[in-house]
Design a protein around this nucleic acid. Structure first.
Length: 447
DNA sequence: ATTCCACAGGAAGCGACGGCCC
DNA sequence: GGGCCGTCGCTTCCTGTGGAAT
């Protein structure tokens, strides 16, 4: 242990001594040669035994490796059992919050089903489509056709950019040529702007088999089905499978299983896994986040050249992931939302209770918008932007009544104000508000 | 019990824009 | 190329709301 600490001190010293001489066109030079990737490459590997197992993209190969999902696996298998009778199973809608294992379990169950079908000589084709990648009805149809083409001819279609009617025609043609049962998984179906596609696909009947395709629609949005039109809703209402969030104990078991295979023995100290489970269970029971946090903690320990992961590494990893999350959300916001957020941040920082109201935000927002020469939106629109920021988890907005003094939304910041401010001021239009201007504007409002 | 405030948020509509289709 | 249609960002108008003040 003493040796480890000495190593850490030595590294910190070398960090301090390193001097960047010049950075140009993405190329840089450093005086200290210990930063070559070769020295990093040759370092003794002390933390990860098999890092791939704590990557979010990792999917277990065996269905028994999916812990605490026996009930939904059973239910999905029961829904799909018609394949054994050479019949297309009922359509399935799978919903649950992020990180509850919807995609992983669906893929595992289908892999298993394919193996059994092959053994029993039942012709089965499964297609997995991530609607986030395609995001339009036509895009999804194109991807399905590509997969069918691959299944029938062993090659992908080269031409892209067909119209919807052309792609619909192609789908029917390819589907008619396909022998056996077709199962199409539409992951993140809520990302498709026009979900009439579900109806179109579900009502297609293969001339060869007389069967429709089976659709498995996966969504994070519990209200997704309620927003569909009547006929589409009835098509999807056949079978529903809900994935509940994992609790702390379940997350604990999932992490323990990964720790055992992914890290060298003794690397993860006793309190690390319970801490990660508790942090993730108190949010959404998100297993993906828990595994990501475990991986990041390991990387931080590795960075520090330590051979154990401690609680402080988990907390640091949690902060870094939170920073990444906030940065990626804020960077993609439109200018008007950024300005609304900046105003809320300044006002809450200057308030004794660290909070502000819609009316206060709107007054300062108008001044800022005028200063940076952008359109001044109506208060009605700003209330919508505040609600959007609230649903993104950047601010916390609660409707509160002040009796005779009216009803308003009380807004407080979620996460570090400094980080939010820093990311916002990267925007060149908001940068001009940096410094005294923010304070001056605030004082004007008070006066 | 009634009044009143400062909004929240629903509904309808407008203009810009992009994709599709003939 | 032009018409059609859906979507998006926004405005205007409106009703509803909780609770302190009267």
């Amino acid at each position: 242990m003493f040796q480890m600490e000495t190593e850490t001190i030595a590294l910190n010293e070398s960090l301090c001594n390193t001097m960047y001489i010049g950075i140009s066109d993405g190329d840089y030079f450093m005086e200290n040669s210990c930063y070559s990737i070769e020295s990093m490459w040759d370092e003794e590997k002390k933390i990860f035994l098999n890092k791939a197992l704590v990557k979010v993209s990792y999917v277990p190969t065996n269905i028994s490796d999916a812990l605490h999902r026996e009930d939904v696996i059973r239910k999905m298998q029961r829904c799909l059992i018609d394949v054994s009778k050479n019949l297309a199973p009922n359509n399935i809608i799978v919903y649950g919050k992020m990180g509850t294992g919807k995609t992983m379990i669906t893929k595992l169950v289908l892999n298993d089903l394919e193996k059994v079908a092959a053994k029993k000589r039942v012709k089965l084709t499964t297609i997995y489509i991530s609607c986030e990648d395609a995001n339009s009805e036509n895009g999804v149809l194109g991807l399905i056709n590509n997969n069918l083409m691959f299944e029938l001819l062993g090659k992908f279609r080269e031409k892209i950019g067909n119209s919807i009617s052309r792609n619909t025609f192609n789908f029917k043609k390819l589907f008619n040529e396909l022998d056996g049962i077709l199962i199409i998984v539409l992951d993140e179906i809520d990302k498709i702007k026009n979900p009439d596609l579900i109806n179109k696909l579900a009502r297609s009947i293969s001339e060869k088999t007389g069967q429709p395709p089976c659709l498995i629609c996966i969504t994070n949005d519990i209200n997704f089905k309620d927003d569909l039109k009547g006929h589409t809703k009835s098509v999807l209402a056949e079978s529903e499978i809900q994935f509940n969030p994992y609790n702390a104990e379940q997350l604990n078991n999932i992490l323990d299983a990964r720790v055992e295979k992914a890290f060298y023995p003794g690397v993860v100290v006793d309190m690390v896994v319970p801490l990660i489970s508790a942090l993730c269970a108190q949010e959404n029971g998100d297993a993906r986040k828990a595994i990501n946090l475990l991986c990041k903690s390991g990387e931080i320990a590795e960075e520090k050249l330590k051979n154990v992961i401690k609680e402080e590494d988990v907390r640091e990893a949690n902060d870094r992931l939170e920073l990444d999350r906030l940065t990626s959300i804020i960077e993609t916001l439109p200018t008007q939302s950024k300005l609304t957020l900046l105003t809320a941040s300044v006002l809450s920082e200057n308030s004794p209770k660290n909070e502000c109201t819609t009316g206060e935000i709107y007054n300062i927002y108008k001044q800022y918008a005028h200063l940076i020469d952008i359109d001044i939106l109506t208060q009605r629109r700003i209330t919508d932007l505040i609600s959007e920021l609230d649903s993104l988890g950047i601010i916390n907005a609660i409707v509160k009544s002040n009796g005779r003094y009216g009803k308003t939304k009380v807004i407080s910041m979620q996460g570090s104000k400094q980080i939010i401010r820093h990311v916002l001021l990267q925007d060149y239009r908001l940068k001009s508000l940096e410094g005294n201007l923010l304070q001056n504007c605030f004082r004007n409002n008070l006066n």
